[in-house]
């Protein structure tokens, strides 16, 4: 079956203060796949996610999502933008209850409080007992699970995960990984996972992209990426060598 790209990135260049931090001549992300993006700090991984969530327009080139173009000259329509969301390394919860946080995205879309959907999402991340708890009193792992529930309730076509399990204990890591894996399997949600954790990339991803210094060094199926990397820099990174 021919893969169906939901994202096509063409001739992307992105700069901050005149310094180009991302250069991607071409990248396709297939609908329904789990793509892991790995690389050292400062490689441009989070910048890539901001472009994919249409938070920043690329300085050069275009991001095509489901036939809609996003570039420096063209904004993404709100309805299309709302099909994509992000769970970041820091949960960034509102100073409200867990339930109010989970309902936030629904309210933005004009839905009145959808309690069954919110409760279902809260249950999915195992926090039903904390529904009315102030979100800012939760532990790091619980807060990150609320952030995930807040994204799940929106049933996004694409979920972008930026180091979602960094600094979490194994229980919370496993719970989050299982939840996003189920989301992908049951709803064919496209997942783009930025991670420093190569084992996590191996566990979850179907394809892996290696970014180094803003450049896409290698993109391959996960088994090939880890077993027979083509680029010596990828091989070094997979071995755990320092790569600059």
């Amino acid at each position: 079956m021919t893969p169906n790209p939901c994202y096509t990135l063409l001739d992307i260049g992105h700069s901050y203060g005149g310094r180009e931090v991302l250069r991607i001549p071409r990248l396709e992300i297939n609908a329904g796949e789990i793509l892991a993006v790995v690389g050292p700090s400062g490689a441009g991984k989070s910048t890539l996610l901001r472009l994919l969530n249409f938070l920043e327009a690329p300085t050069r080139g275009q991001v095509i999502f489901d036939g809609h173009e996003f570039s420096a000259d063209r904004q993404m329509p709100l309805t299309v933008r709302r099909r994509v969301t992000t769970v970041s390394q820091r949960p960034m919860l509102l100073n409200r209850s867990v339930q109010a946080n989970v309902e936030y995205g629904l309210r933005l879309r004009g839905h009145r409080a959808n309690i069954p959907a919110a409760l279902a999402a809260i249950e999915q991340v195992g926090l039903l007992g904390l529904t009315h708890q102030p979100a800012l009193t939760l532990s790091g792992g619980e807060a990150q699970r609320v952030a995930l529930a807040r994204a799940l309730v929106l049933r996004p076509a694409v979920l972008l995960l930026d180091e979602p399990t960094a600094n979490l204990d194994p229980y919370n890591v496993a719970l989050i990984e299982n939840t996003v894996r189920d989301l992908n399997r049951q709803h064919h949600t496209t997942l783009v996972l930025v991670t420093h954790n190569l084992f996590q990339a191996q566990r979850l991803a179907q394809r892996v992209a290696f970014l180094l210094d803003g450049t896409l060094v290698e993109l391959a199926r996960a088994d090939r990426f880890f077993q027979t990397p083509q680029d010596p820099r990828t091989a070094a990174f997979v071995r755990g060598d320092m790569v600059y």
Partner: peptide, 23 residues
């Protein structure tokens, strides 16, 4: 980053600004 997260969740600029004022 909270404002950026709100926009990532689908807020318009106005909705994000209002959320920040409420926060």
């Amino acid at each position: 980053l909270l404002r950026q997260q709100m926009i990532a969740l689908g807020a318009t600029r106005w909705q994000a600004a209002l959320t920040i004022i409420v926060e």
